[in-house]
Every structure is written in C-alpha cells, then in structure tokens.
C-alpha cells in the first residue's frame, strides 16, 4: 500500500514526527490537522475515529497490522470522549505497555472536569489541553514535543 493511497495519512513531511490523532469529531479533526500542517514538527498525521481503532492502530492489530503503512506514532493526540472505548482507557493501555509508554500523549478534550484531569495525570499523560484550544498554546506544545524527541531520543527514523 503506497503512502499516498493510505486514507489516514494527511500530510507527509520529511524528518518530522508521525502523529496519531484520535478524534471522533470530524470538524475538530480537520482543525487540528490544519494546525499540525502549519507546524514543522508534525509529519504524517494518522487519523482514527474511535478508541477501538486507536488501540488497533497502536498495537498493529486488524486492518492496521502493516507496520510499514501504519508506523508507530511519536505523538498521540487523544480526545477523551470517544465512541466504543473512551480516551482514558486508551491512555491507560498505552502507558501500561513498555515499548510505547514514552510516546507523548496529549489529551484534547472539552472536559475540564476535575475527575478526568486526575485520572489522566494518574496515567502519566504528557499534556492536557482543554478545548477551546488556543492555537498559540498548541504550537508551543508541539515545539516542546519536538524538542523532547530531539533531546531525549535521538532516534531519527530512517
């Protein structure tokens, strides 16, 4: 499967981070993709609609079994309220898996509920963005994450 035909891939930039975007609201997904496009850190964006698809993608199951077409993301943008499996569950599963626990996860949510925040931080979420998101804050977050990968993990993808 060529990368151009992969429906999940929205943009391809050389030497940039592969991003998994888990967002069921298509308008929000569109918005975030537009922001990511404008940022040099973000590379290919793989977009899935629900928690189940997110886990399938991360663990290369089902239709996402091809690791070439669906590479491991280096940043996960995760909505909390998702169809099928909710965002907190996806977060817990990511952070409980040693190979991917260091992949930064940014929670994107409309919920500023204390309960959700606490649970997310208990699960070592890297950042928590409450919608309505600020474009500038989003940009600086992406900068930080780019820096994180550069500084702490010099493994640039071949």
């Amino acid at each position: 499967m060529s990368r151009e035909k992969n429906p999940l891939v929205r943009k391809h930039k050389q030497r940039a981070l592969d991003v998994l975007l888990v967002e069921d609201n298509s308008a929000h997904a569109e918005l975030i993709i537009r922001w990511l496009e404008a940022h040099e850190v973000a590379g290919r964006v793989f977009h899935v609609n629900d928690g189940e698809a997110a886990l399938d993608y991360i663990f290369n199951r089902g239709q996402y079994s091809d690791t070439e077409s669906f590479p491991r993301p280096r940043l996960v943008l995760l909505d909390l309220r998702l169809p099928k499996i909710d965002g907190l569950e996806v977060l817990t599963r990511i952070k409980a898996t040693p190979e991917i626990e260091n992949v930064p996860v940014i929670i994107l949510t409309t919920s500023a509920a204390q309960r959700d925040l606490e649970k997310a931080y208990q699960n070592h979420v890297n950042s928590y963005l409450v919608k309505p998101m600020d474009h500038d804050k989003f940009k600086s977050l992406l900068n930080e994450i780019g820096y994180y990968w550069l500084k702490l993990n010099c493994d640039t993808r071949q």
């Binding site: 929000h28 918005l31 409309t110």
Partner: peptide, 21 residues
C-alpha cells in the same frame, strides 16, 4: 450535565478554531 456541556461546547470549539483559520 457532563455530556451536555461536552457536546454543546464541541460546535463552539469548531467555530472558534475555524474563525481563527
């Protein structure tokens, strides 16, 4: 209340975001 606030906010976020764009 949680659901309603979440789901009603959602279109607002879209509007705000796309107004910026």
């Amino acid at each position: 209340t949680y659901t309603v606030s979440h789901d009603l906010k959602s279109p607002l976020i879209t509007i705000r975001g796309f107004v910026g764009l």
